[in-house]
């Protein structure tokens, strides 16, 4: 089962290495990891997606807490979180097919951010499901390159109201 962990860490050199190497050496698999500073510049948030059962998740959480630089670990409830990912797709697009691709991008509220002689680059944000659906459609035209940020997430506002 996939879990989205929101981990607050001190914004210090080497913290990412500590977290990533903990997952590796304890045999936990990271599906995605995104990191950036928070409203407090001394603190970073890591959003880590892992596949793990309950026992493994408990062990991951406890091991994370053992790292001195880790402040808080939250397993976000999928029904009560906002999660987003940003993807850039560079799609093969000869002039005669550009229109179709732009239409797909519009349907998904994605933006065309670069136009080349034989390609379009699309910027899309959304949940995993939405992006997967869009990717599936774009694949028919040929995806030349793809870059994704990994998921970021926050618990919904009602939680801390």
């Amino acid at each position: 089962m996939k879990h989205t962990l929101s981990v607050l860490v001190e914004n210090k050199p080497g913290v990412l290495t500590r977290v990533a190497s903990l997952f590796a050496r304890r045999g936990f698999n990271i599906d995605s990891l995104a990191v950036g500073t928070t409203e407090d510049p001394t603190i970073s948030r890591m959003t880590i997606v892992v596949s793990a059962d309950e026992t493994a998740l408990e062990q991951i959480t406890k091991q994370l807490y053992k790292l001195i630089n880790v402040l808080k670990v939250q397993d976000l409830d999928p029904g009560d979180m906002i999660d987003r990912e940003l993807v850039l797709y560079k799609v093969s697009a000869l002039p005669e097919r550009r229109h179709e691709i732009i239409e797909i991008a519009n349907v998904f509220r994605a933006k065309i951010v670069d136009v080349g002689r034989a390609s379009l680059t699309i910027e899309a944000t959304g949940t995993g499901d939405k992006l997967a659906a869009m990717e599936d459609l774009l694949r028919a035209y040929g995806i030349k390159e793809l870059a994704r940020t990994g998921k970021i997430a926050l618990a919904r506002g009602s939680r801390d109201a």
Partner: peptide, 13 residues
């Protein structure tokens, strides 16, 4: 510090 991450409680550079 890289080498000893897995075998220290914490380390500093």
């Amino acid at each position: 510090t890289g080498i000893t991450i897995p075998i220290t409680k914490h380390n500093y550079l």
